[in-house]
Design a protein around this nucleic acid. Structure first.
Length: 486
RNA sequence: GCCCCCAUCGUCUAGAGGCCUAGGACGUGGCCCUUUCAAGGCUAAAACCGGGGUUCGAAUCCCCGUGGGGGCACCA
């Protein structure tokens, strides 16, 4: 199995899913998962993209058995370092009469295309150099003339290729173009490089995006020309925009980032999503296990993934569902694990806290988060020296200032009089106080919550008070009384 | 324009001729629980693109139409 991205931009969900499926099959079959970098196009090469790619895969937990940084029998893993191999294979094809040298200039080709379009034909290679005698062509090459090597696609008949998800796909050979295999700069094109590498690296299953489907017949012909057995072809459906209308464009992704969402793995990590959740989410976009199971850890996926349950139709990206999975996976984490993962988010929000400090707090917020970055907002009041509640939030629902201040004073009295200060000891006397004051629990507890946490929304009151500590609670309540009376 | 693929609730999907009164999940509404917010439990609304075949019987098979998507580079 292999995952062979081209480093031209940030790693996105589509790539991540392809990588995941490759990884799963490799794990399942005991095969190796090879990471190969398709960097044959130096015009589009982005030096940051490769680092982003390896970071993204590592974050997701999809470690490769061979590839950059992990030596193996099929090295090198950058196509730019395999130029000699491609040249050799292209020349072999020429010698076998399955490919030819082409000396057409880009301008000529451009003009051909234009004329074809005017005649309402499908743009294709006009065939000028296709039948050039080999000796003559070789002489021109030897003389240093600029050239490319093109595949000599059959013109008669048709070809039938099997895609694992779609069955037999038959295409008339006249619709298959004489595509360039080797550029004039000596670099191979995908059509050559990927086929050669997949064969040489012993790839049994080719998982790739549906956008490759139109060139599948060409690729099958290339395999045939070399006399190689076909791999298992699996073309995954594309991901559509959340609206379901069309593939994500560059503009869409930018706009999405502006509105706080993203299809880039790197962004998802920063936004507080768990790799487990992202994996679970994308695994189910185009694949399902049965009619009800939806929660999967990576190990479950390895065990249960099945190519035959893949769905060939395109799917729209649904971030709501990601939120749901994230919540599920957050709740599935142990307290220690979650506390550890929360650390960087507290640090980013300006709180210097330790795992030990977080341990008692985590159970209080674990069911209240959909993303990890919400934690500091939810639990920040535990770590602040002082909190400052809005004066109007200190007034109980339906009460006036004097009543509120009185209620607050009563709470202070009770807390001072408690032999022990904890959740259990607070509950009863506080409820009694509410009744005695003629207040509903919600009225009384609501104002106290605001006084202690300065938040309208917080973990349960008494648990929070216990963790904040008696002295700090009293200080905050007194401050609230003062604020009410001024 | 040409080529290819796809088609079940708004979305992700189950469904491989009778188990379908079409199931699950997200989201949405309601109820319960409840000191806020969540989580959790219960519940409701919500789909087989259309037309022709084949068959005793079709969401499932075939054809046509329509719609959607992808591709037509010395990019991947």
């Amino acid at each position: 199995m292999r995952f062979a991205p081209s480093p031209t931009g940030l790693t996105h969900l589509g790539s991540a899913r392809t990588a995941l499926y490759n990884f799963l099959i490799a794990q399942q079959t005991g095969g190796s998962f090879i990471l190969r970098i398709e960097d044959t196009d130096q015009k589009r090469y982005d030096p940051n993209a490769e680092a982003d790619l390896t970071n993204s895969l590592k974050w997701l937990g999809l470690d490769w058995d061979e590839g950059p940084g992990v030596a193996g029998p099929h090295a090198p893993y950058h196509q730019s370092q395999r130029m000699g191999i491609y040249r050799q294979h292209a020349e072999d094809l020429v010698s076998a009469g399955k490919a030819f040298y082409c000396f057409c200039t880009p301008q000529q080709l451009e003009q051909d295309r234009k004329q074809q379009q005017e005649r309402k034909e499908q743009p294709h290679y006009a065939g000028r150099c296709r039948e050039l005698p080999l000796a003559e062509a070789r002489a021109r090459v030897a003389a240093g003339e600029t050239h490319v090597i093109r595949f000599k696609a059959p013109k008669e008949g048709s070809i039938t290729v099997v895609d694992r998800l779609r069955g037999e796909i038959t295409v008339e050979n006249r619709n298959i173009d004489d595509r360039v295999l080797l550029k004039s700069d000596g670099h191979a094109l995908y059509h050559l490089a990927a086929m050669v590498d997949d064969h040489l690296m012993g790839i049994t299953h080719v998982f790739r995006g549906e956008e490759w489907l139109p060139s599948l017949p060409l690729h099958a012909h290339i395999y045939e020309a070399f006399g190689w057995p076909q791999p298992e072809w699996v073309h995954l459906s594309v991901f559509l925009k959340p609206s379901g209308k069309g593939k994500m464009s560059k503009r869409d992704t930018e706009q999405m980032r502006l509105s706080g969402q993203s299809i880039f793995v790197k962004d998802l990590a920063a936004m507080g999503y768990l790799p487990e959740a992202v994996l679970n989410w994308i695994a189910l976009m185009g694949w399902s296990y049965d009619d009800r199971t939806e929660f999967f850890a990576l190990a479950d996926l390895v065990e249960k993934f099945d190519i035959d349950k893949l769905n060939p139709s395109p799917s729209a990206i649904d971030f709501k569902k990601l939120d749901h999975f994230n919540g599920l996976h957050i709740r599935a984490l142990s307290v220690e694990d979650l506390a550890t993962r929360l650390l960087p988010y507290f640090a980013a929000a300006g709180y210097q806290v330790s795992v030990e400090q977080l341990l008692p707090i985590v159970p209080l917020i674990q069911t209240r988060m959909t993303t990890l970055d919400e934690a500091p907002e939810l639990a920040g009041f535990f770590f602040k020296e002082e909190v400052s509640a809005q004066a109007d939030t200190l007034i109980g629902q339906g009460l006036d200032v004097a009543q509120s201040a009185a209620a607050m004073r009563r709470a202070i009295e009770i807390i001072q009089g408690l032999a022990e200060f904890n959740t259990a000891s607070l509950e009863e006397p506080m409820r009694a106080a509410a009744e005695e004051l003629g207040l509903k629990a919600g009225q009384f507890f609501g104002m106290l919550r605001n006084a202690v946490t300065a938040q309208q929304v917080s973990p349960p009151l008494f648990e929070s008070m216990e963790l904040v500590g008696r002295e700090t609670v009293l200080t905050r309540l007194r401050a609230a009384v003062e604020k009410l009376e001024s």
